[in-house]
Design a protein around this nucleic acid. Structure first.
Lengths: 325, 325
DNA sequence: ATGTACTGATAGGCAGAACATATCACAGCG
DNA sequence: CGCTGTGATATGTTCTGCCTATCAGTACAT
């Protein structure tokens, strides 16, 4: 049995004539005739009574044709479902994001995205890179927004932007009036950082080896940079934050932001998803929305930027987008 | 799209593994892989996410698989309907029968048939041969029980039995004590017959030309031989009836039945149906039931008896059933 | 590190299904 | 009697569906 055979018997039942039915099915009359015979044979039931003058439905035939119609309707419904699902910008997109990016990106991202893809709500999960990797692999989330490197097989990555690090000190701190600080300076102070489960802490420690090796690095509780910012404001030490964390939204009169001396340490933020994840269009729209957020201290990368951050970003070697878009 | 493809995606969705799904579908893994790809291509939608380690449903995929299952269920329901309809002894059989046969056959036929085919009730229509022919052609009835000849294209006929004619006279009639009468004798009497729309009347007239030509033949009102029997009982004349009309059931003290002299005139009763009518089994059961009714004055015919009555039946030339059944 | 086992995708070849064209057998009608 | 219209049949071609063999990549144990 196949769907064409069902279409054929429905057509014959409606037309009560093999030729016209064949025409309506866009096949030759013999093709239709033999197909109907084959179906009757397979079902072991005569569906039509054929006389030279007219074609009639048998009693069973009438019920079979009715059921065939129902079946074909279900097939049509399936087609309709596929048609609806064809638009990749319909349906929630589950985004995993690291703690040190989420709070500074999502408030602007979500309205921007709902503008360009109103039928694709974001479902956000905030966690550490390690946990996000697990959830991406087992399909609990679709796309990750995190800091490179992220070298995992079966994964596609699209670098979005580089973001410099900045020193944050209490407003009355002796460094508050400095124009810039070299990374080494941090060894002189108590530097509050998230625990080592957070990639950002490790990247700071890497950029400022004194903090990593010496005793100046202090692990703060929780998963939020905002906790640390408040601790700094209350005089518990200094810290290093990614530039996007120092937007107007999060600025405080109690704190002062001091940039690093050139070349400032930075991190490369990227979108990452399973190669097998089919909604490229959704990822593309998400990437475009992220690139156009106008975050402070951030340099948008061209589409072909390297996965590895490479030489820390400076204004001197800022990558240019290719001439041909 | 075809039904196998639907079966395949359901299997993959259940097994979450192409190999196992292929095994369950009794096809090779490549066959299943390409079929699923083909369907995804056709629908323009990704149904599964394939990674090396596992297969996951996309959101659309989940809905499509669900709908595919519904569709396959409808197909299964169609198969079930066919299975039910396969038994040709299920469902009413519409039988057309001539007026001069019905009353003498049906009272015994109906219970006999409901014995061997309880799920095949008879729907009986009693009429003249001409009207029955029309109704058989346009499908209002399925099978006819009538007297031969009945030569119509596209029609199958199965002769069942030969039935002699008998003379019926009032009990005190001068013929009542005769052992037998020659057909010619009828010209001496008023012979009551149905009008010429009834084949039986014509057959009597044919067998006894004197009745047909002369004035002895009298057309009685109505379509029932029983009306005529009563008229004979009340002395309006004599008549000729088929032997089955003179069973115990219809016998009367006011009447006497006198056989014709050998060779007695007779008629050949047959079942007749459209060649395209598919329920041969139903016809066969009906024929068998009719053959085993034990009607008086009736000789059962072998299966290969001629359509034309041929030489009037006598005990001398009685046909024998073939050795091999 | 490296070999083994497992995944799904791909390549090439073959058999059968599905189809088209041409023709037949038959009923109905003028 | 010839003409028209019906569904069935015959024959050849095209294409689909499937097979086996193989590849490419990941996971995992050694």
């Amino acid at each position: 049995m196949n769907l064409n055979e069902l279409r054929y018997i429905v057509a014959v039942a409606q037309e009560r004539n093999f030729r016209r039915a064949a025409e309506r099915c866009f096949v030759s009359q013999p093709a239709l005739s033999t197909a109907v015979q084959k179906l009757e044979e397979e079902l072991g039931v005569q569906i039509f009574e054929r006389s030279r003058t007219e074609v009639t439905l048998t009693r069973v035939g009438a019920r079979l044709v009715e059921q065939a119609q129902r079946t074909l309707e279900e097939v049509e419904r399936l087609r309709a479902l596929a048609r609806e699902g064809r638009d990749q910008l319909i349906g929630a997109l589950r985004l995993g994001v690291i703690h040190t990016v989420g709070p500074y990106v999502l408030p602007d991202l979500i309205p921007a995205l709902s503008q360009v893809a109103p039928e694709m709500p974001l479902e956000v999960e905030e966690s550490t890179t390690a946990q996000l990797e697990i959830n991406l692999k087992n399909g609990l989330v679709d796309v990750l927004l995190l800091a490179l490197p992220f070298d995992v097989p079966g994964i596609e990555a699209l670098p979005l932007y580089d973001e410099v690090f900045e020193v944050v000190v209490p407003a009355r701190h002796r460094w508050a009036r400095k124009r810039a600080l070299p990374p080494q300076a941090l060894s002189e102070e108590r530097v509050l950082l998230l625990n080592t489960g957070h990639c950002f802490s490790n990247q700071v420690a890497e950029a400022c080896p004194e903090v990593g090796r010496g005793t100046s690095g202090v692990s703060a509780p929780g998963n939020s940079l905002e906790t640390i910012r408040n601790m700094v404001a209350s005089g518990s030490g200094v810290t290093v934050l990614p530039a996007s964390a120092n937007s107007e939204r999060y600025r405080s009169a109690l704190l002062t932001v001091v940039p690093f001396t050139d070349p400032a340490p930075s991190r490369r933020i990227a979108l990452v998803w399973r190669k097998s994840f089919g909604r490229e269009k959704a990822v593309e729209v998400l990437a475009t929305a992220l690139r156009s957020l106008h975050l402070p201290g951030v340099t948008i990368l061209p589409f072909d930027a390297a996965i590895v951050p490479g030489i820390p970003f400076t204004t001197a070697n800022a990558p240019k987008p290719p001439a041909s878009a």
